[in-house]
Amino acid sequence: MSTKTVSPNTLRRQGDSGQSGDKIFSTASLLAGCLILAVLFCVAVFLLVQAFPTFVADPAEISGGSGFFSYIWPIVIGTVIAATIALVLATPVGIGVALFISHYAPRRLAQGFGYLIDLLAAIPSVVYGAWGYAVLAPQLALAYEWLANNLGWIPIFEGPASNTGRTILTASIVLAVMVLPIITSLSREIFLQTPKLHEEASLALGATRWEMIKMSVLPFARPGIISAAMLGLGRALGETMAVALVLSGGALNASLIQTGNQTIAAEIALNFPEAFGLRLSELIAAGLVLFVITLAVNVVARWIISRHKEFSGAN
């Protein structure tokens, strides 16, 4: 091709194909965005449809024999207990680790320590479950026996303690380890965003490192810490395998060191493979309840974060 003539026609044609390419591409990306919304909507709708038989069934046919509400109530309580204990254990440690990485560790090592904590998040939940079942539970069984003997007068430590250590407290400790990296990584981000001038100002006024953190870092990061804890709560509420493997479940039990209690997610995982008919829709209904609870927790957490984003930019 020695002479290259570009006719207006070719230009036109190229322009046309480009235009349709543009249209196809923008439509496809719009559809993908809408698909995500549709999927979330479908999750709710399909769960509702499949769970519907449970709500209209004769109460005597539901497991337990007295209606869906009395079936779901104990496991909702069990779920909340396990997640709450996990959160109470993990939040202070998580904040401490985040502070360690953002303000205490030597600069050169801080990033490496951050990776180390992120590794905690990378370990699959079933491995945590197996670890809790095989390593943690037998060790904690000794501690539980001591608790039952010495603090048995407190209802939550009432004996006789479980011999295997597979109790809701063990499950909660495993859950705490699992939510720790979530709380740590989010609060670390927020701690690092603290305006440097605030920190330097308080140090210049003679504050010790702890006073600087207490007066400039923590107040700035409070909304972030709250939302990090709530995201951790969402994870702890929905975590399945760790609880299914560690907890030897049963009826609702006030004592944390005896066998008993059950969480929604573990109840589903343990019974779903053999379930059919009404039992199946019962378990899906339980899943719907879990979905609603975690959705509410997550929405509140995300709302706090997004509200916080708006005014943190002003600094």
């Binding site: 995500i36 979330l40 399909f46 995201l231 929905g238 899906i284 899943g287 879990l290 959705l295």
Partner: peptide, 26 residues
């Protein structure tokens, strides 16, 4: 979309499983 993507990251994995099971079951 941004908000619900964030919310979706918090869906319990078992609920996602139940959704797929319910969808294909229907």
């Amino acid at each position: 979309i941004t908000f619900f993507v964030d919310v979706m990251t918090g869906i319990p994995s078992i609920v996602a499983g139940l959704f797929a099971a319910a969808l294909f079951g229907l």
